[in-house]
Write a protein that binds this DNA or RNA. Structure first.
Length: 288
DNA sequence: GGACCTGACCGTCCTAAAGG
DNA sequence: CCTTTAGGACGGTCAGGTCC
C-alpha cells in the first residue's frame, strides 16, 4: 500500500471530500467545465490536464505533453506547465497549491524508460472532482473506468458487468461526486431496504479517517456507497423522471458475482453487528 | 560526444483584484 | 480613479541522466 509520501498527496474520507477537497478544488480550479462557460485560464489549464489523466490513466509529465503534439507550444514548455500545475509554485515566499497539494492527483510509480521519472494519475478525489466538474460524456466516463479499474476495483473494475445489468444507472457516481447523499441522508422510509442505516454506518465506519485515509479504504467507502445508493430512486442527468432500480436487478449483481457478494455482505454484516451491539445496551434495561 | 529527457530552479511580464 | 500586489504565463538555466 503506497504511503502518502510515496503518493505525494494526502487525502481523507468521503466526508473530507465533501467538506474540504471539493470546495477547495472548486475555488482553485473551477466549479464548472470551461467547455460550458469560459472562466479563468488557470481553470481551463487544470481541467484540460485532468481530462488527459482521465482518458489516459497513468502518465509522466512528458507523456501528458505528448498527448497533444499538434499544439503550437513545444513539448518542453508544455511539460513544464504540467509540472507546475501539479507541484504548485513558490513565488514571493508564498506557495500556491497544485493538484498534488489538493490531493486530486497522486504519484503512481516511476517510469524507468530513461532516467527514473515520476508518473502521475488521478486520485479517487480527483476522479470524483473530474466526474463532478468536467462534464464528461458517458463514453469518457467509460474510458476513465477502464483506465482506473485498478484504483476503484469494485466499481470501475466491474463496469462492463454492471452496465449489462443496470445500464445507465452506473453513472450514478455523479451524485456522489456532487457531494450528495454522503451525510445528513434524507432517505429514511423511501424504501423498505435499510439504506438509511447502511449509509449512516458507512459514515461511522470511516469517521476516523477524515484527515487521512489509504486508497484501498477510500475505494471501499466509495464502492459501498455506490451499491447502497443504487437502491435509492434518483434523477440522473437531464432525465425528468425518477428512476429506481428493481430490487431483483440489484440482487442479480451479487448473485452473478460472488466476489462482489462476499465483499458487500461483509460490510452489511459489520453494520448489523454495529447496530445490534448498540441496541443490546438499551435492551438490558428490560431485565432490571 | 551529441541529441534527448527529467527535475528543480529562477526572473520577468501581464492581468485582475484589492485597497486607498 | 489610480496604485499596489498576488497569481499566473512563460521563457530561461542548470545539473543531472540515457541512448546512440
Amino acid at each position: 500500500m503506497p504511503s502518502p509520501a510515496e503518493q505525494g498527496a494526502i487525502y481523507g474520507n468521503l466526508h473530507s471530500y465533501k467538506m474540504f477537497t471539493r470546495p477547495t478544488a472548486q475555488r482553485l480550479f473551477g466549479s464548472y467545465s470551461f467547455r460550458k462557460k469560459s472562466g479563468p485560464k488557470h481553470h481551463e489549464n487544470i481541467q484540460k490536464m485532468l481530462e488527459i489523466l482521465a482518458s489516459n490513466g497513468t502518465l509522466t509529465t512528458w507523456g501528458m505533453a505528448k498527448t497533444h503534439l499538434a499544439d503550437s507550444k513545444s513539448i518542453r514548455s508544455q511539460e513544464k506547465e504540467y509540472r507546475r500545475l501539479l507541484m504548485g509554485r513558490m513565488a514571493r515566499g508564498k506557495h500556491t497549491s497544485g493538484l498534488l497539494d489538493v490531493g486530486l492527483v497522486v504519484k503512481d510509480g516511476k517510469s524507468m524508460l530513461k532516467v527514473p521519472a515520476d508518473q502521475y494519475r488521478l486520485s479517487l478525489h480527483g476522479i470524483l472532482y473530474s466526474i463532478d466538474v468536467l462534464d464528461l460524456s458517458n463514453k469518457q466516463a467509460d474510458t476513465m473506468a477502464a483506465k482506473y479499474a485498478h484504483v476503484l476495483p469494485m466499481v470501475f473494475g466491474k463496469w462492463g458487468f454492471l452496465k449489462k445489468i443496470i445500464g445507465d444507472e452506473v453513472y450514478r457516481l455523479k451524485i456522489l461526486a456532487g457531494g450528495l447523499f454522503m451525510d445528513n441522508i434524507q432517505i429514511a422510509n423511501i424504501t423498505n431496504f435499510p439504506v438509511y442505516e447502511l449509509m449512516t454506518y458507512l459514515n461511522v465506519k470511516y469517521q476516523n479517517n477524515f484527515e487521512q485515509i489509504n486508497e484501498e479504504d477510500l475505494a471501499d467507502q466509495i464502492s459501498f456507497w455506490f451499491y447502497t445508493t443504487l437502491l435509492v430512486p434518483s434523477r440522473l442527468g437531464s432525465a425528468k423522471k425518477q428512476t429506481s432500480l428493481a430490487l431483483n436487478q440489484w440482487k442479480k449483481i451479487f448473485k452473478d458475482d460472488p466476489e462482489l457478494k462476499t465483499w458487500y455482505y461483509g460490510f452489511v454484516d459489520d453494520a448489523i453487528a454495529f447496530y445490534s451491539k448498540r441496541f443490546k445496551t438499551i435492551k438490558k434495561l428490560d431485565s432490571l
